[in-house]
Design a protein around this nucleic acid. Structure first.
Length: 292
DNA sequence: GTGTTTGTTATCAA
DNA sequence: CTTGATAACAAACA
C-alpha cells in the first residue's frame, strides 16, 4: 500500500530520473486508467516534458512544460511507477496471457501495465496497477486545485501543528483514533500501516475513542507521526504486498514494523503477543501491554 | 467457493 | 446541514 513514505520515495527518485525529458510516445493500455480524456491525455504528453513533481498526501502532481494541465497520479493500493532506462523488451502488450507476478518487472510491460510513457532517449516509465484502483490522468488547474484543497495539513511541514491535532481530536468526539488518523481531510498521507505504527509509537490503541485520549497521549501521537514517517522514508518505504520503488526495488522498512502484519508475533519491546482487531473497517494491530 | 487485503468514494442513518 | 459508520469497488491469494 503506497502511503506517504512510499509515494515520497517514488517522487524523489522520479525527480532525478525523468525531469525535463522529452516524451516521445505514450501507450495507453487501459483507457480507464487515464480517466475520461484518453486522446487528450496522449496529445498533451507527446512532445512535452515534466518540469516538476509534487506530492500532496498520497497524490503525485506532475507539472507539464507546455500545458496548463497537469498529471495527477494516485497509486491507491497496488499502483507502481517503474522506470527503465534500457529498453529490455519491445513495447508489446499481451492481454491475459500467462500468469505473472506483480513483482515481475523483468518483463515489462506485464499483465498489470496500464500506461507506458516512452521518452525520446528510449527510457520508459511504466504505470502498473494490479487492482486497477489507481489513475494517471490529465487535470485542469481547477481540477488540481479542487483535489488539493481536500487534504488536511502535510504532516512533515509546519502546517501540521499540535494545535491542529488538538482541534481535530476535540471536534470529532465520537470516533476512534484510527479513523481520525486515516482521514485524509484531517491529516494527509497516513494509511493503514503507518496509523498502526504511529499508535504503537505513542502507546495508544488505535481503537480508542478520541475523547478519551489525554493531552499527554495526544502530544505523543503528534510527535510520533513525523518521526515514523521520516524513519520510513529513510528506509525507502514498506513493501507489504507489492510496493516497488521506481527502480523496481522493495522498501526496506518492512523489517522495522513494530505491529503491522505482526499479529501473533512477540512485541519487540515487551514480548507480549501482538493482537489484531478491526477498527474503522480496517485490519488493526496493537500491543495489548504497550498500548493503553 | 470463501474470506481477507485497503484507499477512496458513495451511501445511508442519525 | 453535519457526522460517522459501513458498503462497494477490484484482483489475487491462502
Amino acid at each position: 500500500m503506497p502511503e506517504l513514505p512510499e509515494v515520497e520515495t517514488i517522487r524523489q527518485d522520479l525527480v532525478k530520473k525523468i525531469l525535463n525529458k522529452k516524451i516521445a510516445h505514450v501507450e495507453v493500455v487501459r483507457d480507464k486508467a487515464v480517466g475520461e480524456m484518453g486522446k487528450k491525455f496522449v496529445q498533451a504528453l507527446v512532445g512535452n516534458s515534466i518540469t516538476a513533481i509534487h506530492r500532496r498526501g498520497k497524490l503525485l502532481i506532475a507539472i507539464l512544460k507546455n500545458s496548463k494541465d497537469s498529471l495527477l497520479i494516485h497509486l491507491r493500493m497496488t499502483g507502481q511507477l517503474i522506470y527503465e532506462k534500457e529498453v529490455k523488451n519491445k513495447v508489446e502488450i499481451v492481454a491475459g496471457g500467462h500468469k505473472m507476478s506483480e513483482k515481475d518487472i523483468e518483463n515489462l510491460p506485464n499483465k498489470s501495465t496500464q500506461v507506458v510513457i516512452v521518452f525520446a532517449d528510449g527510457a520508459q516509465l511504466f504505470f502498473n496497477d494490479q487492482r486497477r484502483f489507481g489513475y494517471m490522468k490529465l487535470a485542469s488547474p481547477e481540477t488540481v486545485a479542487a483535489a488539493l484543497k481536500k487534504y488536511g495539513p502535510e504532516p512533515l511541514t509546519k502546517d501540521f501543528t499540535e494545535e491542529h491535532l488538538k482541534k481535530i481530536f476535540t471536534a470529532r468526539q465520537n470516533t476512534t483514533v484510527k479513523a481520525v488518523l486515516l482521514n485524509q481531510e484531517l491529516i494527509a498521507g497516513l494509511g493503514n500501516i503507518y496509523v498502526d505504527e504511529v499508535c504503537f509509537c505513542a502507546g495508544v490503541r488505535p481503537q480508542r475513542r478520541v475523547k478519551t485520549v489525554t493531552a499527554s497521549e495526544r502530544k505523543k501521537i503528534f510527535n510520533c507521526i513525523p518521526k515514523i514517517l521520516k524513519e520510513a522514508i529513510r528506509h525507502r518505504g514498506t513493501t507489504f504486498r507489492n510496493f516497488l520503488d521506481s527502480s523496481g526495488r522493495e522498501g526496506n522498512y518492512t523489517t522495522f514494523l513494530r505491529v503491522y502484519d505482526r499479529d501473533g508475533e512477540p512485541c519487540r519491546r515487551c514480548q507480549t503477543l501482538i493482537q489484531k482487531t478491526n477498527a474503522a473497517g480496517r485490519g488493526t494491530h496493537f500491543c495489548p501491554k504497550c498500548q493503553k
